[in-house]
Nucleic acid binder design. Structure first.
Lengths: 135, 135
DNA sequence: ACAATAGTTAACCTTATCGTTCATCATTAT
DNA sequence: ATAATGATGAACGATAAGGTTAACTATTGT
């Protein structure tokens, strides 16, 4: 069972995403990845450990030489994350629904998405209108 | 243009995902969110700043009281991230293709996914077979 | 004018992260 | 046996994240 926190933390590092991009093409050895990303092997080893612990990567396939660890990508955590993202992406329709039930009793004809934006009505105050947004 | 690094880093915090989950339903005020997630307002303010900077959230809609900042969700960074994820998810077919072109000249009948796994052949060594995996 | 409210910023502390170098373990080659 | 290789582990330093309290700005109410 993939953990969103772990998965996101693992992916929130360019080096580890680099690993993922490399493994996307084909399984590779640890040192090969370290070299490709210009990083010491210990550093890469730790990145790989993180990726392993989150299940984004597995090691297997002893390459005829038991010294080398072949790493390959594993899809499950990524699919799980995508599932969560799609769920979140439903926010727009969710807000539409919420808006609907909040405004009307059960009126069957409220389907313009512009309606949701209309929720930001102008302040009734006639004052200087405050700046909000100082870059 | 949403930045993957920023987006992932922003999402890789349970508090900020909590904010997202709250805003999924409807726009809310900063203090409301802070209270819902049992966190001091300054802490939440910084989380909101992070979310703002990554474009995951925008503030608008002065709620008749110019003191309150209404926060609402913004879909673009999430969609961008989902796009990347789907791209990564293509790794399996990519590896199939790579395997195909590596093994055969152009033989038109190589469509068992088990083939890709078959790449992990047994070591020719007859030794104790090394442990690999010490939990 | 004064106090109260919503929100942010600043200063501080604690903890975690990332990379490096050095040491260690396991496996293969001479 | 000894050396060389692939990978990991441990200790160190630098940097950034996340929380708290206190101070500050802006707006509203009395």
């Amino acid at each position: 069972m993939p953990d969103l926190d772990q998965t996101l933390l693992a992916l929130a590092d360019p080096a580890r995403r680099g690993v993922i991009d490399l493994l996307r093409e084909k399984p590779r050895r640890a040192s090969e990845i370290a070299h490709a990303l210009r990083m010491s092997r210990p550093a890469m080893s730790r990145h790989l450990r993180v990726l392993r612990q989150t299940g984004l990567v597995v090691q297997d396939g002893i390459d005829a030489d038991a010294r080398v660890r072949m790493y390959r990508l594993r899809g499950e955590p990524i699919e799980h994350l995508r599932g969560w993202l799609e769920e979140v992406e439903g926010f727009w329709t969710a807000q539409l629904a919420s808006f609907k039930t909040r405004v009307e009793g059960s009126n069957p004809k409220p389907n313009r998405e512009a309606r949701a934006v209309a929720a930001s009505r102008a302040p009734k105050s006639t004052r200087p209108a405050s700046r909000l947004q100082k870059p």
